[in-house]
Design a protein around this nucleic acid. Structure first.
Lengths: 204, 204
DNA sequence: CTCTGTGAATGCTTTCACAGCG
DNA sequence: CGCTGTGAAAGCATTCACAGAG
């Protein structure tokens, strides 16, 4: 299929918003309302949805539950996926307990760190392991996603090990871009660069 | 000037990479090397740089220090900017001590939380305050940037208060889009949506 | 009327290809 | 040669505008 990155990103956000509407038992939602909530335009929402061949009802809008189900199917968001976090410093351990992940169908099933000290001191319900068992656990627990929360200098090494262990996608919180084989999906979340971007946009 | 968001974003990353090169005392860098480090193409790098009317040297590439300085000037990245963090849960307090911010010219000068309990228990060198003094501190400390690390349901209220207090830009870590006046720069970092995006891209 | 659905037009960005410089 | 600099071309994404459905 032929759908742009931006469209996917927007549709993922729509999916999240539909989840909220569904919990409020809203039955129908118009492209206008969706647009407002996403901060985009109604025709953009309609276009994005129509790319996936999903249709709504004239005069009513889109049926919330079925749109959510359809979007989920098309975007592979309906099944729960297992993820692990590598690096249990302040950020990594905050992410371990980030409840939103679980709510949204991403289950954090393991944490890894090279420091035995950290592993012993951490307080969490999620199982934590030394780096030496990274591959073993990823394979045995069928973990699909890796979240990198180590310092910049170790990020590439961790990415390599995650790939070698067989994860399919990675979310990288370190301030370095990591290089991965092209069949592996990699998304970067660089906080510092986000602040730079804000600064750069301030006087424009 | 007429420069796209994507270009700005890429140039900010180039800026970060130049910082590393500078510390290694590298004198010149080619568009090819920059491209490799950014995961983009050489002509993209050259184009981006040329949009800002910055030039390099034929056969040598760009002089690291002066390119960094020029980029910094054009993108307003050369002066240190003060930021505060609102919400001192696990994520917020991890961000409080995120050293990279300081290294890169963003100084976290205050943290805020509505829970007195959290304020008392937190261990950090950065000053923390109750929400009631948000505006007062933002004004008196001349804080320009606000980092939102509160739960989704409070994000919009916090954003409103930050705007009212006079911040110019915000980095929003909550999984909700917040609406701000158009002169305020707002960047969203939605972890869950990042994972969704990865999931959606997995089988494409 | 109101709201969806979508080809067509517009407007951006990226990519190309090659001139220019040392 | 090797690497920058940049108009021009190509490729995408967004926006428009209006037909269609109830």
């Amino acid at each position: 299929m032929d759908i742009s990155n931006n469209s996917i990103e927007r549709l993922c956000r729509v999916f999240g918003y539909l989840d909220i509407l569904e919990k409020k038992d809203v039955e129908f939602v118009s492209s206008m309302e969706l647009a407002e909530a996403m901060g985009s335009a109604a025709h953009t929402v309609r276009k994005d949805i129509s790319i996936l061949n999903i249709t709504g009802y004239t005069r009513k809008g889109y049926p919330v539950s079925s749109l959510k189900k359809d979007l989920g199917n098309r975007l592979n968001l309906n099944k729960t996926r297992k993820a692990c976090i590598v690096g249990l410093g302040r950020l990594g351990s905050a992410l371990l307990d980030y409840e939103k992940f679980q709510e949204d169908g991403f289950e954090i099933v393991a944490g890894f760190d090279s420091s035995v000290n950290k592993l012993e001191r951490i307080r969490t319900d999620i199982e934590v392991f030394p780096m030496s068992s990274l591959k073993e656990m990823i394979v045995s627990k069928r973990i699909e996603l890796g979240i990198i929360a180590v310092p910049a200098e170790n990020a590439q090494a961790v990415a390599d090990r995650l790939v070698e262990a067989g994860v399919k996608g990675m979310l990288n919180f370190s301030p370095t871009k990591v290089t991965v084989p092209k069949e592996i999906v990699n998304v970067n979340m660089d906080f510092t660069n986000a602040l730079r971007l804000i600064a750069a946009k301030l006087n424009k």
